[in-house]
Structures are given as structure tokens and as C-alpha cells.
Design a protein around this nucleic acid. Sequence first.
RNA 1: GUGGGUGUAGCUCAGUUGGCUAGAGCAUCAGAUUGUGGCUCUGAGGGCCGUGGGUUCAAGUCCCAUCACCCACCCCA
Length: 419
Amino acid sequence: MEYSAPRGTQDITPDESGIWQYLEATVRETMARCGYGEIRTPIFEHTEVFERGVGTTTDIVEKEMYTFRDRGDRSITLRPEGTAPVIRAYVEHRMAARPQPAKMYYIGPMFRYERPQAGRFRQFHQFGMEVVGVPGPAADAEVIATPLEVFRALGIRDVVVNLNSIGCPVCRGAYREALRQVYQPVLAELCPSCQGRYDRNPLRLLDCKSEQCRASVPEPPPIFGYLCPECASHFAELRLLLDGLGIEYVINSRLVRGLDYYTRTTFEYNVGGIGSQDAIGGGGRYDGLVEQFGGQSVPGVGVACGMERCVLAMKAEADDSRFARGITVYLVSLGDAARAKAFELAFDLRAHGISADFDMIGRGLKAQMRYADKLSARYVAIIGDDELERGAVALKDMASGSQQDVPIAQLATQLLNNR
RNA sequence: GUGGGUGUAGCUCAGUUGGCUAGAGCAUCAGAUUGUGGCUCUGAGGGCCGUGGGUUCAAGUCCCAUCACCCACCCCA
């Protein structure tokens, strides 16, 4: 019986981990440059964190969570998203008493019980950022713009930014009623899930893509006519900030998103070429969430990006050779004495910060050369009986094929100089 | 949760109307006059043909079930 990784999970093998490390390094570098500190929250939380944070009417909470009872009979859930835990931590650690705003980022695995497909997994990874304590649109703009910096650094082109405002509790009530008026006459023709949405969460009616609903529903009015003055000016200012950065975006009045905590700004990034799951990231403002967790009324904005989808997009771009690893020098040895010397020499070079590897299984010269080539070694240093006697190695540049004798004592400095 | 597709070597796939010890390319390993990689050539290892049942003299091939994977819906990252 052979085992396989559980459904919807995958191994990232050494062949794949290079691209992941590049992605992670790019995220960390960008976040640090933008003034964000990393926060690491637990992989699992009390189930209530997500029920209260994400919202009980969401698909995530209704049918996608990995929830179980632990041995103390507590209900535990593997985190399906990152924002609720971060806000829980913000309240728990009294971060409101630290310099505001709190700017945090995270990288890590998330879990949702869904049918896997291209770009969708049961264990997947996100990087995300949260700005807590900024009521104005500068935070929204930064949170929208920063992942775009990451995408650009990764070589992901043609990212489309979809942008919307879904108002606040004040203006949303009126809009909700307006939507109900539009949908009420055609209620019987709606798809089953929309019939449920009509009562529970009319805003999500906008999100439906089913042909059935498309055909029978008249175009609903955009929310913009219903926004209260504060929400309207917040949205207008945000647009000015984005315009100032030269960021192009598409106003999409149907962009609602499936988490209950959003207020005002919502947005999503889409890319082509990675299958039908083309949302590479998304986020929005959540002004009531800190209060939900028992904190003061502190506003927040955040974004989360799917790393598997980033990897797909990176691979869709032509040149992925830059993610490959390679060592600086491979030590080819001939005979037992030379092999022992190569072993010592490898550790000596490594101690100098040079990546070096050597033959461990006593292969022939040709086989060692082939292996060095497959490792993409930049140099090969050959040690045989002659070289042992002279205290030197034959150093070969694998790209040019040129070769020279180098005294062993000078090998490290020579390699460092050639860099 | 719903629908469609696919399961043969590590990978990508051939395999005739059911019929000999199941093949190819790539990959791995070893060689091609004894100390030099990529190109070429030779050879080797590696398969319970996803699993279980059925039909048949005979099943990789036909039937049923099951599992897994892929894609899509839904929703999201």
C-alpha cells in the first residue's frame, strides 16, 4: 500500500521550492520596505474566532472549515483565512496601546474544505497585510498598491484591479432595500442559493454568476447612488490616491466578496493564464471587526493573496530559470586519498561562504562531471593524485570550459574574487 | 455539494476486432582504450496495466462497482 498526500494538499519538492523561496523572499523584502512587521498567529484557533469574525452566513463558515473537537472537548478550526486571527491578536495583545497604525503582514498556510481544481487546494498559502487604526483612504490605497509591487517584482504582468465600495452599515440598509425591490418580482426565477441570499444577505445577490439569474434579473442599480456622504468621499479620495500612483483599476459595482466583515472598500486582483480561478488576491476595509472581537472601535483594511496562484502566474511567464538553484563549485575526486581531501576541502570552502559539494559515492570522473553539470555547478575542481602531490586543484569554468591550476591554499580566495 | 474527463514505467504517452515473456521517448544508472560535463551511440534497472468483482478458453483491452487525480460549476486566494 502506497500513501499519497491527502486530497487537495501537495508536496513542494526541492525542484519546486526554489520558486517558492523566491516568492517568499520577495514578499518579505517588499513588506519590510513598506514598514510592515510580520505577525505569526496559530494555524488553528477557537472556532468562534471565525464564526464571529468571518460571519456565519459565509460559505467559508457554513461549509468549508476544518473543524474538530480536541481532547479537551474544545471546538478548534484550522484557519481558513488570516484576517480574523490577526485582529484577534491585535485585541488580545492590546495593540491599540502601541503606536498606531499597526502595520502587519503574514505568510502561511490556510485550510478550506473544497473540491480541488486548478489553483484551488484544501491547504493553500497566502501572504497578506493588515493596517489597523487608519480611518482614511491612505491605508486602503497602500494595501491595494503594495501587492502590485510584489506582483511586478515577481514578473506577473497584466494584473487587473477590480474596485468597489459596499458602503457602511449606515448606507447599506437603504441599498439593501433597493436591491430587494429589484429582485422581489423575479424571486421565484432565481437560483436556489440566491433565494436564500435574498433574505439573509441581499448584497451577495450581486455576486451571482449563474445564467439563470443573469437572464431573469434586470440590471440592479449600482450602490454608488446610495452611499452616505462619508462613504462616497472616502471612495472618491481613494480613487484620487490610486490615480496619483498611476494604478489602473476597473470599477466593478458587483464586487461584493464572500466575507461578512467588509465595509466600504472591496477589491480583487485578477490575472489570465492560470485557469478559471483567476483571483490572485483580494481584500477590503473592515471597520467594525476590531469591535467584534471586543476591542475599541478601530478601523482596519487588509488584503490576502494566494501564493499557489502567484506561482502559477510566475510559471506562466516565460523565464523561470531565475528561480533555479546552483552551486558554485563541485569537487571531483579520483581515488580514496583525493576523495578524503575533497571532503575536507568542501567544508573549508563552505566555511568561507562558498557553496561547494563533492562526490560521496566514488563515481568515475565522467559521471562526476555529468553530475556537476546537472547541479549547474559554476566551477569544477578536479583533485587526483597529481594534484594531491602538488597541493593544487584543476579548476574548470563550466561555462567557458577553460581550466587552470590553483593551489589549494588559494582556492577559496580565488573563488570569492571571481564572483 | 453538482457535472464532465482521465487512470499502463519516475514523467509524457503508444498498445489493433479481447490472443505470445506489455512497448517508445524523456529521466535515472553504467559504459563508448585507463583524467574531463553538455551532443551522439550502446546497454541496464524500473510496471499486480489505480483497486475489487464479473463475462470469457483467454482481459491492459468488454461490463459493474469503488478509489484517486484533473477540469468546470459554486465560491474564493
